[in-house]
Write a protein that binds this DNA or RNA. Structure first.
Lengths: 237, 237
DNA sequence: CGGGCCATTGAGAGTCGTCAACGACTGTGG
DNA sequence: CCACAGTCGTTGACGACTCTCAATGGCCCG
């Protein structure tokens, strides 16, 4: 069977929604979608605009953000490779999607994608499951945003980012020191955690002073004492 | 055609997921589900427990709540009649579901319900759409919880509750004074808004003092000046 | 070398949480 | 019928946490 052009080198083919499709089905997909590269800082979808595209993230990190009329912003979700992007079955996009790093997407016109869902029930079911997972995650974050202190937020954020980075460079020792780069600026971390830049910075230096983490420079972070960090995360998930 | 026993007097039949089914399909449903009544304060689903049931809310108001290990609680969603309850395709329940008023549910064993979804694609699609809607709502609340002041939260909460209550007693004048009963105690309002009882109470009396609302007694609220309330809600959805 | 952007640090102020007291209302039992 | 406890809501005093404003220094790039 001829392999599809687009999908053949897809880095996330078996983790994304398309993993539910057969090779034959992928061939059809190939004709409908296209690759799209995005530079860091570029916005793919604007909240309030017509919901035109859906797709999968292949590479990079995207932010999903909401903002109020007077400019206050909140990042309501981060998207990583293999995550689904977009809002099927709605005329308008709810949130703004912006690239935090250079990124690559595999996109479909929304209507086309809805047709795909209808033709491929397994894919629709997978999307339903993912949407439930995203809903659960969003609700967990509501607890954090509403009830956690700044220290708890920063600590649990670092633990979460370490899990994500750690799985990539999968290490043998689960509790030894880990070093990784945050894909976010302090300002973006603040937008995720519902804090200000200054508060995030202060909490980071506080954790450093306590010997729980190190800040080698740039956006690198080293977790020195994960248990201590977990203790400070308390309320978080 | 013989009408089904359970579904025939269902108050939300055409608004809930079942609205997508034919009469024949409803007949099958009838054998699988059952009615369940819940007293105010009773908990239907405990976070962390096995996810056993799914269903539709027929009557009453339920809260969906998350709590941290040390007891801090946050209401992450409110459920009204015709809303879907439960978490298909997951072994454990993510959140606790508790009745705020006496309530009535139409429930199915989770596995049974998953089978229903597979057999009735239109229902599955409807559930997907609702889940996306719930996700959007949860994310909007994240903005509120992270960035709004106490006054903004209370004002937008009152506007939201008025919309909900107002549609029931559908009035001709869209901006005249409305009176309605909150189905929540001050403590529960605080849990929804991520505040404390005292702060909610103070904001309410502040709005009353400003002539924006009245508090006739009990849990009744009268909106006197909706525009002023909207102005104070600002950042909210 | 100068201009941005980013991160850190300090000082001060404001909002909201905590603790506490009190009144209204309800249901219970003597 | 009344004392009583329990729940709910309000109000006050106080303090802590976080935001705001401001200054500084590092780093990268033109």
């Amino acid at each position: 069977m001829a392999v599809t052009e687009i999908c053949v080198d897809c880095a996330v083919r078996d983790q994304a929604l398309c993993g539910s499709l057969t090779d034959a089905e992928l061939g059809a997909l190939n004709r409908l979608g296209r690759r799209q590269t995005i530079a860091r800082g570029e916005t793919v979808i604007w909240a309030g605009d017509e919901s035109i595209i859906c797709g999968n993230l292949l590479e990079g990190v995207l932010k999903l953000s909401a903002s109020s009329s007077d400019g206050r912003e909140q990042i309501v979700g981060l998207l990583y490779p293999a995550d689904f992007v977009g809002r099927p079955y709605a005329d308008d996009a709810d949130f703004t999607v912006t690239a935090l790093t250079d990124a690559e997407l595999c996109v479909f016109p929304r209507k086309t994608f809805e047709g795909l869902l209808e033709d491929h029930v397994r894919m629709e079911r997978l999307l339903l499951q993912r949407t439930f997972a995203a809903l659960g995650e969003a609700r967990s974050r509501m607890l954090m945003l509403a009830r956690s202190s700044a220290e708890e937020r920063v600590a649990s954020f670092l633990l979460g980012m370490a899990d994500r980075a750690g799985s990539a460079s999968c290490r043998a020792m689960p509790d030894g020191p880990v070093t990784f780069d945050l894909p976010l600026t302090r300002g973006q971390v603040a937008d995720v955690l519902g804090l200000t830049i200054e508060t995030v910075s202060r909490q980071m230096t506080k954790l450093k002073a306590a010997g729980v983490i190190s800040l080698p420079g740039g956006r690198a972070v080293t977790l020195r004492d994960r248990d201590a960090l977990r203790a400070r995360a308390e309320a978080a998930s």
